[in-house]
């Protein structure tokens, strides 16, 4: 299991899509490729944009299918962050 603390990488308001993409490509994807489970730790992050969360996880769902959600965990999320993650997860499974 790999736990990734996002606050030092993206700040209190997670909105930088370039950073999100970097994290996905250079941290999450390699861990998943090794068969590891990944926990994204949002401790210290007040809020996020849908664009940030989309850039962080949408391509994982598209590439690996919704089964990737069995290996991906989100922790220490505020209500707003939880809501935005749930929205992106929902619409990626609609698409």
């Amino acid at each position: 299991m790999m736990t990734l603390k996002l606050r030092p990488l993206v700040g209190v308001f997670a909105e930088n899509k370039d950073k999100a993409r970097e994290i996905r490509l250079h941290k999450i994807v390699p861990a998943l490729a090794k068969g590891q489970e990944v926990t994204l730790d949002f401790a210290g992050i007040d809020s996020a944009t849908q664009s940030f969360v989309h850039a962080l996880i949408s391509d994982l769902i598209r590439t690996y299918g919704c089964e990737v959600l069995d290996k991906l965990y989100f922790q220490n999320c505020t209500e707003t962050v939880k809501k935005i993650i749930a929205i992106v997860v929902d619409y990626m499974q609609e698409g």
């Binding site: 899509k17 849908q50 664009s51 949408s58 391509d59 598209r62 992106v88 698409g95």
Partner: peptide, 16 residues
């Protein structure tokens, strides 16, 4: 034109 957008865009920003 793909539903769900690309890895970077979902077509939601201006609507929100």
């Amino acid at each position: 034109r793909r539903e769900g957008g690309t890895e970077f865009n979902a077509g939601a920003g201006l609507f929100v």
